[in-house]
């Protein structure tokens, strides 16, 4: 009895095993070993930033369809180099890009609202109700579509309820760009420092009146004139930086009358300038005193 059981089960296993071995020979599908190798170096976030459904699909596309190897945003340079090594071609790293929210309304606490929105808690629904709850027709509506879309927890709320992107966590996958119904989010080069943080196409006075922070772009065009590289252009009352030309000089941020252009170094520069002015004045004063002393040596 026991012998029968062992023999039967063993025989079944053996037959199945042989059958499968035979089938795997017969139905063998040639898969390029490079696909597995590339798939192994990809970050496996399956975010879709490359334009393919997932990491394995992208690996396949690289090998079989000759897709560009620098499309993986989360992987960055490291992955591009690794993939280049596997494929045996030169690495051409794309500049790392991160997301930027083009609105600095000052957060939920500062923004002016037309009404209190209590509907479905998504941005897509909020913008449908009489053009959104906030007074500015172009600004953030303070639901959390971008935060929910982010795979990497890179977007957080500051104390005023403003959505802030963590530069180091952001991988530039672009999920939030697609999620924002007002198209406020754009992928910008990581090295870029100077940004226009307004999306309002309203006329100057209107735009400023509606912005909670009073930092709307009023379309005055001073930055366009002052830019040494012609990198800023005015479109429908809104200045836009061409990131391929911008050199991060920050002159536009200095001249902007409404502080709609953001440059983290602006205050540092202003401080330096003020100090230099103070020094110059002090030096002038000293010279004047010396001259006065020379004139009246008796005193």
């Amino acid at each position: 009895m026991l012998i029968y059981a062992i023999i039967t089960l063993g025989a079944l296993g053996l037959i199945y095993g042989l059958g499968l071995a035979f089938a795997s020979r017969k139905f063998h599908v040639e898969i390029d070993p490079k696909i597995d190798k590339i798939n192994a170096v990809l970050p496996q976030a399956n975010c879709g930033a490359c334009g393919y459904p997932g990491c394995s699909a992208y690996a396949e596309a690289i090998v079989e369809k000759g897709a560009e190897i620098n499309l993986c945003a989360p992987g960055g340079e490291q992955v591009v180099n690794d993939v280049a090594k596997i494929m045996g071609i030169e690495a051409s790293a794309s500049d790392k890009k991160i997301a930027l929210i083009h609105c600095q309304s000052g957060g939920k606490n500062n923004t002016f609202f037309r009404y209190d929105y209590q509907g479905i808690a998504t941005c897509k629904a909020a913008v449908l109700v009489t053009n959104g709850p906030n007074l500015c027709n172009y600004g953030c509506v303070f639901q959390n579509d971008c935060i929910e879309a982010c795979h990497f927890d890179a977007i957080y709320l500051d104390e005023n309820g403003m959505r802030i992107i963590d530069k180091d966590k952001c991988t530039g996958c672009g999920a939030c760009v697609e999620a924002c119904p007002r198209n406020l989010i754009e992928l910008v080069p990581y090295k870029q420092r100077v940004h226009i943080l307004c999306s309002s196409h309203d006329k100057g006075v209107e735009a400023k009146k509606r912005c909670g922070n009073k930092t709307a772009c009023i379309g005055c065009g001073i930055c366009v004139k002052k830019c040494p590289k012609d990198a800023i252009k005015l479109e429908d009352n809104l200045a836009i930086i061409d990131y391929t030309k911008c050199i991060n000089c920050g002159i536009c941020a200095d001249v902007c009358p409404t502080s709609a252009i953001f440059d983290p170094l602006k205050e540092v520069r202003a401080k330096k300038k003020a100090e230099a002015k103070k020094k110059a004045e002090a030096a002038k004063k000293k010279i004047a005193e010396q001259k006065a002393a020379e004139k009246n040596p008796n005193k």
């Binding site: 059958g19 499968l20 089938a23 795997s24 139905f27 063998h28 599908v29």
Partner: peptide
């Protein structure tokens, strides 16, 4: 199931 998987992958 293993066999079916192989066959489908091929065919």
């Amino acid at each position: 199931v293993q066999l079916v998987e192989m066959v489908i992958q091929k065919i």
